[in-house]
């Protein structure tokens, strides 16, 4: 196959794959399921090689084997080998315990590493909680009235007030989710709910636009590239 025919095949198959996925809009069908399975297979095959290529090999195996050390012409080296790097074998061997999940007798060994990973993720959450929440709390305390010299900055003051009111009312609604009875409680809770819905609307708008951008790109591909390529083939066959 010539480079041009590879390109043509890429466009034609890409178009068929796109149409097969969109056929789900009519109803679930065997063509959709075939390409869905193919996508899962290809994504599952790409992931592990990518993980080894970008993480396991350059960050762990290459330094551990000393392959990243450069020997300079004057007999010196870029950096000396650190034998402590061999300690990476310990977590790697420990991680191998995951594979005992397939053994009836020794599956409990896999639970050790699963438990360890859950514990590590809990530790990271603890660290992440304080690292993330404290700066956010600090930056949330904004002045309600903003001055620049003698001048009152109206828009900035308004924005800061809206920010604080939204933050407090949504937090009130979120944290005190029990039944509210007082007029003030109800008012704050309602405001919180309304502002939260505004936020969800904005989220929704952003998400739809991101998906629509992909849809437009796919339709552009189908109408210009795929249809063009298909038309070229039909014309040459007829001629």
């Amino acid at each position: 196959m010539t480079p041009d025919s590879w390109q043509l095949a890429t466009i034609l198959v890409g178009g068929v794959a796109t149409i097969a996925i969109y056929s789900f809009l009519i109803k679930e069908n065997s063509l959709y399921r075939f390409f869905e399975h193919l996508f899962i297979g290809i994504a599952a095959g790409y992931g592990p090689v990518y993980a080894i290529r970008t993480n396991l090999w350059p960050r762990i195996l290459e330094p551990m084997l000393g392959l990243d050390i450069m020997h300079f012409p004057d007999g010196t080296v870029s950096h000396s080998y650190n034998p402590l790097l061999m300690l990476y074998l310990v977590p790697m061997l420990f991680g191998m315990l995951y594979y005992f999940i397939y053994s009836r007798r020794f599956s409990w060994l896999a639970k050790l590493v699963i438990g360890f990973s859950l514990g590590a993720s809990a530790g990271l959450t603890f660290k992440g909680f304080f690292a993330e929440i404290i700066p956010q709390i600090v930056t949330s305390f904004r002045p309600l009235v903003v001055f620049e010299g003698e001048n009152l900055l109206g828009m900035e003051s308004f924005s800061n007030t809206v920010f604080i009111v939204t933050l407090l009312s949504v937090m009130y609604y979120f944290f005190f989710s029990f039944r509210v009875s007082g007029k003030v409680d109800k008012g704050i809770s309602f405001t919180g709910r309304w502002l939260m819905m505004t936020c969800f609307g904005a989220y929704f708008g952003s998400t739809v636009m991101a998906r629509m951008a992909l849809l437009v790109e796919r339709l552009e591909f189908l109408i210009i590239d795929w249809w063009g390529a298909l038309g070229g083939i039909i014309n040459s066959t007829v001629a």
């Binding site: 796109t18 996925i21 809009l25 290809i42 849809l215 796919r218």
Partner: peptide, 17 residues
């Protein structure tokens, strides 16, 4: 390009609908 990118984009844009 023909499968991974095409199928991935089509799947995500389908969710938009």
């Amino acid at each position: 390009n023909a499968l991974f990118v095409s199928l991935g984009s089509a799947m995500f844009s389908l969710l938009g609908v």
